[in-house]
Simulated assay, not measured.
Amino acid sequence: MLVELVDEQGRPAGSQSVAAAHTAPGRLHRAFSVLLFDDAGRVLMQQRAAVKTRFPLLWTNTCCGHPAPGQAVAEAAAVRLREELGVAAADLTEVGTFQYQASDPSTGRVEHEFDHVLIGRLDGGSLRPNPAEVEDIAWLPTGELRAGMTADPSGYTPWFAQVLDIAESAYRTTN
């Protein structure tokens, strides 16, 4: 699979394999992070599967991934929601972007991403986590989640705090 390389402003700048883009020192590429809320305002978290090549077993947003070069971010996010959690449909809205770079000491891989944050609602319906992608899931109130992040920051992916800040602000504005 290819990822879309981008410049500092998020403009396309070529493509590269996922593995090459995540090899140190990492190449800046487009990514997305989805955070789904339920009708009570809780967020759906996932613990990444143990087989993940980057940040395995850490808790993070509902799902994340990379659009293919030229693919719409929301389209790619909807596909990953189906693949990772069995979510058939979620109305997603892009609410912001940010950049980050983080090295995973356990795998030696690097994330250097121009991340698009999307939010949506999921009220009911069954989830079918894919064990190749997801170790566990949990619905958490944001206050409880933030307390957990403070108590054990190493239990969460390095990008998650920024995703939560952007997503929660947008969710509060629209609800």
Rank of each mutant, 00 (worst) to 15 (best):
L2S: 02
L2M: 03
V3L: 03
E4S: 00
E4I: 01
E4G: 00
V6W: 07
V6M: 04
V6N: 06
D7S: 12
D7G: 10
Q9I: 09
Q9L: 15
G10A: 13
G10E: 07
G10L: 06
P12L: 04
P12T: 04
A13R: 14
S15G: 10
S15P: 11
Q16N: 08
S17P: 03
S17L: 02
V18F: 07
V18K: 02
A20S: 15
A21D: 05
H22M: 04
A24P: 06
G26V: 01
L28K: 06
H29P: 00
A31V: 01
S33G: 15
L35Y: 01
D39R: 15
L44S: 12
L44T: 11
M45S: 10
M45Q: 12
Q46I: 09
Q47C: 12
Q47V: 06
R48F: 04
A49S: 15
A50Y: 09
K52Q: 13
R54V: 11
R54M: 09
F55G: 00
P56A: 07
P56M: 06
N61K: 05
C63A: 15
C64W: 03
A68L: 15
P69L: 01
A72N: 12
A72I: 10
V73H: 07
A74L: 13
E75I: 03
A76H: 01
A77K: 08
A78E: 10
V79H: 07
E83Q: 14
E83T: 11
L85W: 05
L85C: 11
G86M: 07
V87Y: 08
A89V: 12
T93P: 09
T97E: 10
T97D: 09
F98R: 03
F98Q: 05
A102K: 07
A102I: 05
D104K: 02
T107S: 14
V110I: 02
E111N: 06
H112N: 06
D115M: 13
H116N: 05
V117D: 01
V117E: 00
G120R: 01
G120K: 05
R121N: 10
D123S: 14
G124A: 10
G125W: 06
L127A: 14
L127Q: 10
P129R: 05
P131D: 05
P131F: 04
A132L: 09
A132I: 04
A138G: 11
W139G: 05
L140P: 11
T142G: 11
T142I: 13
G143A: 13
E144R: 10
E144G: 13
L145G: 09
R146N: 11
R146L: 15
G148W: 05
G148T: 00
G148F: 03
A151F: 02
P153T: 05
P153D: 01
P153K: 00
S154R: 08
G155E: 10
Y156Q: 03
P158E: 01
A161E: 14
I166L: 14
I166F: 08
S169G: 13
A170Q: 08
A170K: 08
A170F: 08
R172C: 13
T173V: 12
T173K: 15
N175K: 13
N175T: 15
